[in-house]
Design a protein around this nucleic acid. Sequence first.
DNA 1: CGAATAGTTCGATGAAGATCGTACTACGAA
DNA 2: TTCGTAGTACGATCTTCATCGAACTATTCG
Lengths: 103, 103
Amino acid sequence: MTRKQLPQPDRAEIRVEAVLQALGEPVRLQIVRALADTPEGIACGEIELPVTPSTRAHHLRTLREAGVLTTHTEGTRRISSLRREDLDALYPGLLTGVLSADQ
Amino acid sequence: MTRKQLPQPDRAEIRVEAVLQALGEPVRLQIVRALADTPEGIACGEIELPVTPSTRAHHLRTLREAGVLTTHTEGTRRISSLRREDLDALYPGLLTGVLSADQ
DNA sequence: CGAATAGTTCGATGAAGATCGTACTACGAA
DNA sequence: TTCGTAGTACGATCTTCATCGAACTATTCG
């Protein structure tokens, strides 16, 4: 079982504009909410989304490049999880606040 | 001196996607940072911004319609201030987190 | 190996939105 | 009432980006 970390920005490279812009898109926010429910990470394809696989890949890349989530391969699957520790360190309260929004 | 509140969404009407999208634009984030420094509100024109007045008006409208700030007239001037109380109630920690980002 | 599975990349398209200049409105001062 | 100031509204333009289908990569399984 191959296991590899996909490229992502270091904590110091994360920019708040990119994070906010990434979170400000409905589909991506839906992804983030799904990840928040499963701290151990989840395979991209298992999140139910109203878009095609290619669009899904685009959004996951955007979130990863913004520093919101981290992804590693596990065989043919890609497991993503929130970079909660980094985000909480950089912007304490932000993630909690976003996720506290009812629906 | 005329004084009038400009139309804005009720607290219950504020949507987190709109807030995040509004905050995820560099010029608008600059506006929000400026407002955070002056709780008593500030005239739009006094915020130094790298855009023309019409673009500035566009961004202020976007922020107002998203529920991020409130604006009232004071003579010919329009004073804006953050809707900190509403945002903190809806998304506790969000604003603090965003503003804690260094630059 | 070959087939199946999970997911990406690329190019095209259409929609959203950031920007500007110009024309306009509202208010206060003279 | 006329002028100046503060700011908005509108229309045009240009850029960004969400979306898709099709082709591709990588990995596991038989």
